[in-house]
């Protein structure tokens, strides 16, 4: 429903001019729905089909609507649905409601203990004002390759819960993303929660950006578990280096069994770079992005290893 192909937001703006000959900061008229429970949200979604879309924090959708790149006659605001908020850590599993804000992620002590990488990554998303509104669910569900949480969720091997007219199902973050803005989620479904195992691995989220609020030039999430001085498991995922988040299994495999020495690190970086496909934009040409990606990946691995 939101197939903006591989075009990134800034390039979209000139596309707006090309197609419509107009500037935009005012959305088309829309009907605003604010259900108080999930059933209510699902029924509006079912009633209006393609004409309806849910809104979480709105940081991706509202700019799209203002640019009139997204035409949403029925907007369903999820913020009154209490069940969609909150963080629990129980029997080795972290569960986060989709409407939990980045601000809440940063300030939750149980989450900090259970998965400190979330804290490190969320602090690198936008600025405090945005994080008061921006949610983890919106961040992972939208399918924007620039968003930080999808790669992180792949790194954590998270599971997304989708609720729709046919009931509830689970999809692995590692299998969720198809292309930019294209995901496994069906039109009638709402992503309600995210869960992943508690981790005590060494961690790092390394991100290069031009300024506060920017998408990554390159970013990388790494988790490394260590025993007897050797890597027992490693997970390496990258942000904004392809049209989807990229989990490099080969990079992880290159580290396992090693002591994360220079040779292993080099092999892991080389493997990770095989899995990405960045495009040129105002941040720079492909050659630059690949080089920076290599640096960011190796720094993330080194920092995660130092904490393992």
């Amino acid at each position: 429903m939101f197939a903006l192909a591989l075009i990134e937001l800034p390039l979209l703006y000139s596309e707006v001019y090309r197609r419509q000959g107009g500037h935009r900061m005012i959305t088309s008229a829309f009907e605003y729905h604010r259900p108080s429970d999930l059933a209510g949200a699902l029924s509006v979604l079912e009633e209006h089909g393609d004409d309806a879309r849910v809104i979480a924090g709105g940081h991706s959708l509202i700019p799209m609507m203002k640019l009139r790149m997204a035409d949403v006659p029925h907007l369903i605001d999820l913020q009154d649905i209490a069940d969609l908020k909150g963080i629990t850590v129980e029997v080795g599993t972290v569960t986060i409601g989709a409407m939990t804000t980045q601000h809440d992620l940063i300030n939750n002590k149980a989450l900090l203990a259970a998965a400190p990488i979330i804290h490190e990554a969320a602090l690198q998303i936008a600025d405090p004002q945005v994080r008061y509104m921006g949610t983890i669910g919106g961040n992972v569900a939208n399918g924007d390759p620039g968003n930080d949480m999808p790669g992180l969720m792949q790194c954590l091997d998270a599971t997304f819960t989708l609720v729709g007219p046919d009931g509830t199902r689970s999809v692995k973050a590692r299998e969720f993303y198809e292309a930019a803005y294209m995901t496994e989620r069906e039109d009638g479904e709402i992503l309600t929660q995210i869960s992943f195992p508690v981790t005590n691995s060494g961690f790092a989220y390394e991100k290069q950006k031009r300024k506060i609020g920017d998408y990554a030039t390159a970013a990388c999430a790494v988790l490394i578990a260590k025993e007897d001085g050797k890597v027992t498991s490693a997970s390496v995922a990258m942000t904004n280096l392809s049209d989807v988040p990229v989990l490099s299994e080969a990079a992880g495999a290159a580290l396992v069994g090693t002591s994360c020495d220079a040779i292993a690190m080099k092999a892991a970086v080389a493997a990770a770079l095989q899995d990405i496909d960045p495009t040129e934009d105002n941040r720079g040409p492909v050659e630059f992005k690949i080089h920076v990606a290599g640096i960011i990946i190796s720094r993330a691995i080194a920092r995660a290893w130092s904490r393992a």
């Binding site: 937001l9 800034p10 390039l11 703006y13 000139s14 001019y17 090309r18 600025d127 031009r210 300024k211 506060i212 609020g213 920017d214 998408y215 105002n282």
Partner: peptide, 24 residues
């Protein structure tokens, strides 16, 4: 303010037009 060869302005938003904040 940058243009492509077609004269499209590539920097018409604050995503790409650098306006520093306290952080920078």
């Amino acid at each position: 303010i940058a243009y492509d060869d077609m004269g499209n302005c590539k920097t018409a938003t604050l995503m790409d037009f650098f306006l520093p904040t306290a952080w920078e």
